[in-house]
């Protein structure tokens, strides 16, 4: 019992440290004018985020974050930079409107967290609908040992098929765009 309490406390400290790193990385990525450096920092952001998911016990999300956040996104950013510019231009006037929008959205989100159930609360609405059923019956009904996989690939199989189709199409689109850009990039224009 005591040991478990201690572990919780430790996890909170690890969370705080990781969140601090995340904020620092995010700020640095915004402040740096070198876009290549920003892309690198966002890669680090993905790595740290995945570590945070692990601490929060969301192992499957961490998997996705590792593959998408730290892997594919970085490569896509680099490709985008290759097609455009290496350095961010200074804005012609201070972006007050954007700042206002960001502050309002951020404030609303922070305010909304007050209405959320406590972290790990078993009585939260999201955990009382079909989740207990899935956890109890997934292995028998689908034969898949991982509950998350069972839900995604079996209970919501058609949903997932749709998602995969969307992602596949998006991937094809990106590849086509990049291919076209690379071929047209003959007249130069790098910084």
């Amino acid at each position: 019992m005591d040991r478990k309490e201690g572990r919780r406390a430790i996890e909170i400290y690890i969370n705080i440290v990781l969140l601090f790193f995340l904020v620092a990385t995010g700020l640095a990525a915004v402040l740096l004018r070198n876009l290549l450096a920003s892309a690198m920092l966002l890669g680090i952001y993905g790595l740290l985020m995945a570590a945070l998911w692990v601490v929060l016990d969301a192992v499957d999300v961490a998997f996705t974050e590792a593959a998408v956040g730290a892997g594919i996104t970085t490569v896509l950013m680099l490709l985008a930079i290759a097609l455009t510019e290496r350095h961010e231009k200074r804005p012609s006037r201070p972006p007050y409107l954007a700042l206002l929008a960001a502050l309002v959205t951020g404030g609303a989100l922070v305010y909304a967290t007050g209405g959320m159930p406590a972290f790990g609360d078993a009585a939260a609405p999201a955990h009382r609908h079909v989740a207990p059923e899935y956890i109890a019956r997934a292995l028998d009904e689908t034969g898949v040992p991982n509950v998350v996989t069972a839900v995604l690939a079996s209970y919501r199989g058609f949903d997932t098929l749709g998602e995969v189709t969307v992602i596949f199409t998006a991937g094809m689109g990106v590849l086509l765009l990049i291919g076209v850009g690379a071929r047209r990039r003959k007249e130069g224009g790098g910084s």
Binding site: A66, A70, G71, T74, V75, L78
Partner: peptide
């Protein structure tokens, strides 16, 4: 959790080479 570590070790390498 080691599965994620394993995945990472690979992604990290592929990422570096791609960059």
């Amino acid at each position: 959790f080691l599965d994620i570590s394993l995945l990472y070790a690979l992604i990290n390498f592929v990422g570096t080479i791609a960059v």
